[in-house]
Design a protein around this nucleic acid. Structure first.
Length: 668
RNA sequence: GCUGCCAUGGCUCAGUCGGUAGAGCGUCACCUUGGUAAGGUGGAGGUCACGGGUUCGAUUCCCGUUGGCAGCUCCA
């Protein structure tokens, strides 16, 4: 059956038919003597292609299948195998969703329904949907698809378009049209009577939707503002065929197994307790080992790179935050102890370490010879996040960060900034995470100047410096307006979790304002007082969040040096318990985290157990013949420096304990 | 903070149209066991998140609280 029937497409008035050449994807050329629609050209190429076509890409711009090609150009026919083509398919599916909702809930008002990375959504003003409702809506969608309405496009002048949507009692559409520029083309798509305002592109027929699924429903603010009404959003996804859809749905199940919030609890790395509170995870003994390993590593490396360590209070009088202006900007996000109205002294738990380290700096008069001055602190911070924001280890109310501040002369800024980035990259690379990050340059929003310290000129200067440094570093950072700290722009190193949600893992920030507020200075060569620049930075970010990232990255199969338990010694029967303990003691003497499994069960159980607990090394201890000890080493190579060094170490250990015979079995 | 969903042994879940609970896996003990993801037998373990209400009686129905999840909004 042919779903995409060639149609007599939108005739563009005032355009003469003429000779034209269309260059296709494979560089072949089609010549036409008159304007042709994209879908007609697709048919001309092949019927199979036309059937699969979802949109076109004309001279690099995604266009509707109905678009008339009336000039020489490059044309690619998009299908669901192209990302952009898939987006058109999903977008059309969202319209079918809207039609189904209107059929079942005539009082529902439609808002917007775009395609997104993972599928599509559509927002409605209507009561929330349950899973059963979604199933019913899916059923209705299937009915609509089976009926197979042709999708037709038409345009209306602005006033008529508004009148049209008013008549249909769709206030959100009216608002959308009113907010579009005066000269915008207002296109509509009609699928068998259901008409939606939409820029397109869309398929030719709803029948081409072969595989879709409604995923979930939730609330979402109209136009993304919490001041607006909350609408009901339905998320769904669609693919070119059922196999791809099923593979995607299976993938969703698979990634749940890597979710740090689930796996981290299962592996007893952390836990939460309702009476302790939201966003306050307990790090269990195993999780603590991992955090400690990271922390010692970071502290040692920072000292090697010229940092001085500080240890400053977890709270301070509010006066401190008034000076930094955190009180003005972020009081809502702080845990305040005491009542400003009643108490003489009000304290607050610290949400950052900056002002504390500034007072470390200010304890003596500094010369330019004292700079760069690098302070590092393993710093526990407290932020009163909104109740709906807490999540596992990635968004918590108390966390510990590898924080630091560098006090610098202007000449030192570039070199030190680069060193900060280099340090961060070193940590990421060693952990095997470097390829998973993206860089973001977070800039201020000149439209909201009251949110920031300083003025436009100063911001332009400091942002300019930062761009230049990034350019010198060869870092291609995506610029994000409005994401800066109130005291300066940031280079944010971002990573995505298993669900694709992005978080800042590491940040390096340039600040030319706070030194002034804290009256920090150094004396230059000429004996004059000068304001220093300050870099706020973290080298490995927040330990809790980094742990979450590692759990998801390695699905719990960590590099050996981080593993809470590195080696399990498995005696094949009770006879070898003594020998197993002897082996374990030798390992422990070398600081290997190991234990002996003395349960009287079959060796198979023990191996299974060690695997399930994601222990990288298993030493199977026993003898083939009486009096002969056999040690076989099972090793899983994970590919990072820490692992490598432990592998070498394990080789040595094995040689040492080789009194009889050693076999090393490398799995994969 | 907003909208919705959820809360039953360590885990995954069943169940009670209102009469104080069950499975599988795990765990523990004993037996068995010389080999790479499941040997046998027996046992322990639950105030069905917490607090109120309705009721002769609430794990079940209603309200509230706390916590968890998804999304939105926020994130120094």
């Amino acid at each position: 059956m042919i779903e995409n029937k060639a149609v007599n497409s939108i005739k563009i008035k005032g355009r003469e038919d003429k000779e034209m050449k269309v260059v296709l994807k494979d560089d072949s050329v089609k010549e036409y003597s008159e304007a042709k629609s994209v879908i007609d050209i697709a048919y001309d190429i092949s019927e199979g292609l036309a059937r699969m076509a979802t949109a076109g890409e004309l001279d690099g711009e995604v266009v509707d299948l109905r678009t008339m090609v009336d000039h020489d150009g490059e044309l690619q026919i998009l299908t669901s195998y192209d990302q952009k083509g898939l987006a058109a398919l999903r977008h059309t599916t969202s319209h079918v969703l809207a039609e189904a909702v209107k059929n079942l809930y005539p009082e529902a008002k439609v808002a917007i329904g775009p395609s997104i990375d993972t599928g599509f959504y559509y927002d409605f003003e209507c009561p929330p949907f349950t899973r059963e409702d979604l199933d019913a809506i899916e059923k209705e969608m299937k009915k609509i698809i089976k009926a197979g309405a042709k999708i037709e496009r038409f345009e209306l002048p602005r006033e008529e378009a508004i009148a049209f949507m008013k008549e249909k009692e769709e206030p959100y559409k009216v608002e959308l049209i009113q907010d579009l520029p005066e000269d915008a083309i207002l296109s509509f798509y009609d699928q068998g009577g259901f008409v939606d305002l939409c820029a397109g592109p869309h398929l030719m027929n709803v029948k081409s939707i072969k595989a879709f699924k409604l995923i979930s429903s939730s609330g979402a603010y109209w136009r993304g503002s919490e001041k607006n009404k909350m609408l009901t959003r339905v998320y769904g996804t669609a693919f070119g065929n059922k196999e791809e859809l099923n593979a995607y749905l299976e993938h969703l199940e698979e990634i749940k197994k890597r979710d740090h919030n689930k796996l981290g609890r299962e592996m007893e790395l952390f836990a939460t307790v309702d009476v302790i509170g939201q966003g306050l995870p307990l790090l269990m003994p195993k999780g603590t080992i991992m955090i400690q390993e990271l922390q010692r590593w970071v502290e040692d490396e920072e000292e090697r790179r010229g940092y001085m360590r500080t240890k400053t209070p977890l709270m301070a009088k509010k006066d401190l935050y008034v000076i930094s202006d955190h009180w003005g900007h972020y009081k809502e996000g702080m845990f305040v102890l005491g009542d400003e109205e009643k108490d003489e002294e009000v304290f607050a738990l610290r949400p950052m370490t900056c002002p504390f380290q500034y007072y470390v700096y200010k304890q003596s008069q500094k010369s330019y010879r004292d700079l760069p001055c690098r302070y590092g602190e393993t710093s526990t911070l407290f932020r009163n996040e909104d109740s709906g924001e807490m999540h596992g280890l990635t968004r918590v109310r108390q966390f510990t960060i590898a924080e630091g501040h560098l006090i610098l002369t202007p000449e030192q800024v570039e070199e030190e900034f680069k060193a900060c980035v280099d340090l961060a990259k070193y940590f990421l690379t060693t952990l095997g995470l470097e390829s998973d990050v993206t860089y973001q340059l977070s800039l201020w929003d000149p439209k909201k100047q009251d949110k920031y310290l300083g003025n436009e000129e100063m911001w332009n200067e400091v942002q300019g410096m930062m761009r230049e440094i990034l350019q010198h570093l060869g870092i291609d950072a995506k610029e994000e307006v409005g994401d800066a700290a109130f005291y300066g722009p940031k280079l944010d190193i971002q990573a995505k979790n298993v669900y694709g949600k992005e978080d800042t893992m590491i940040t390096v920030q340039l600040d030319m304002f706070l030194a002034e507020r804290f009256d920090m200075y150094y004396v230059d060569k000429n004996g004059e007082k000068k304001r220093p620049y300050i870099i706020h930075r973290t080298s490995l970010g927040c330990y809790e969040r980094t742990l979450a990232w590692l759990i998801e990255k390695y699905a719990g199969l960590f590099p050996t040096w981080l593993c809470p338990e590195q080696v399990k010694v498995l005696p094949i029967s009770e006879k070898y318990h003594d020998y197993a303990n002897q082996v374990a003691n030798q390992l422990k003497a070398r600081s290997v985290r190991c234990s002996v499994d003395e349960r009287g069960e079959k060796i198979g159980y023990k191996i299974r157990d060690a695997r399930m607990n994601k222990i990288p090394y298993m030493l199977v201890v026993g003898a083939k013949e009486e009096e002969e000890g056999v040690v076989s080493v099972r090793s899983r190579y994970l590919g990072d420096e820490g692992q490598k060094s432990l592998d070498v170490f394990m080789d040595d250990i094995c040689k040492e304990i080789k009194t009889k015979e050693i076999r090393k079995i490398v799995e994969e």
